[in-house]
């Protein structure tokens, strides 16, 4: 699996927000590697820093936020140090992004054609006609019927699922190496969600595009991702292949998340909950951020646990499955 050269490497990424209330460490030392054509599920609750991680990769963090440390290497080139011009060349071209709410990501006053053609023209010197043809093909690829009519239409004439397909088509226009998908199916109903998941997976496999799928839903990524990274309060607390993380979760937080997903094997039993709430990023507990909610926590947890080595790593002094 790791024989391939990684297309995207995130190393010790730190993105902090300098607000009036203090410094919010939204992303605080996130590392992961993405190989060509690989699907990584980035899982976490609201406020765990998963979306900020995605934005940081493309350099789309607005003040008061700032990347304060670490590296984002695209084919070896550090994007944190890259200038705005270089980033703009890569955005939408080599690294594309899909956002959560399809109702909001397309500009309501511009036609789909305008929004697709401008994306083509932003990176390739082709004629308008050629750009339009490519936009048409992209719509066909994501399964939108009568693409010619649809190109002339405006976003409000599409359903939510269709809009997300358009957004995916836009992301695919330049056959990028990486797509960062920030909860793209959360706002859709379940059947549409399943269709989109299936198609995105298929398209990525066909084109060899690597995918970072950001979600709060472990059930979604377990069927989709090759590898999973679980985030909590700005840090990756557990990472490994999907099988390792889902079937052999070591971090108590991952364990808690898995316990809160309904499953056929535990029919009738109440779902378990993780006690407490996600801590405020302005006021993180010392050491392991999960400590106040963790039943296994001891004195030693006042220090930040290191990510254990190996393909399957976790940040915990008292991992599940080990003698407490």
């Amino acid at each position: 699996m790791t024989r391939q050269e990684p297309v995207l490497e995130v190393e010790d990424l730190r993105t902090h927000f300098f607000t009036r209330g203090g410094v919010a460490k939204a992303v605080d030392g996130v590392s992961f590697t993405l190989n060509r054509g690989e699907i990584l599920g980035l899982v976490g609750e609201s406020g765990s820093g998963k979306s900020v991680t995605g934005m940081s990769i493309l350099g789309l963090i607005d003040p008061p936020g700032r990347i304060v440390g670490g590296a984002v290497r695209y084919r070896g080139e550090d994007l944190v140090k890259a200038g705005e011009k270089r980033l703009r060349q890569l955005r939408g071209n080599r690294i594309a992004m899909i956002f959560q709410d399809p109702m909001m990501t397309l500009n309501p006053v511009l036609s789909v054609e305008t929004q697709m053609v401008e994306t083509v023209l932003a990176h390739d010197k082709v004629s308008r006609q050629q750009a339009r043809e490519r936009a048409r093909e992209a719509l066909v690829r994501v399964g939108i019927p009568s693409p010619d009519e649809r190109l002339a239409a405006y976003p409000h004439q599409f359903s939510g699922g269709m809009r997300q397909r358009v957004a995916i088509a836009i992301a695919l226009l330049h056959q990028p190496d990486v797509i960062i998908a920030d909860e793209p199916t959360t706002a859709l109903d379940v059947t549409i969600q399943a269709q989109i998941l299936f198609e995105v997976q298929k398209l990525c496999r066909e084109t060899g595009t690597a995918l970072v799928w950001i979600t709060h839903d472990l059930a979604v990524v377990s069927g989709l991702a090759d590898r999973i990274a679980v985030m909590y309060a700005g840090r990756v607390v557990e990472t490994g292949t999907t099988v390792e993380v889902i079937d052999g979760a070591r971090h108590p937080y991952t364990h808690g998340l898995l316990g809160s997903v309904p499953s056929r094997n535990r029919r009738g039993e109440p779902l378990s909950q993780i006690p407490g709430m996600t801590p405020s990023l302005l006021n993180l507990p010392e050491g392991c951020a999960f400590r106040p909610r963790c039943q296994r926590a001891t004195e030693i947890c006042l220090a930040v646990p290191p990510l254990s080595d190996g393909g399957h790593g976790w940040r915990c002094f008292h991992p599940e499955g080990a003698a407490a």
Partner: peptide, 10 residues
Amino acid sequence: DYVRFARAKG
């Protein structure tokens, strides 16, 4: 979001 998306499109 659509402005952000426009930026993400490059």
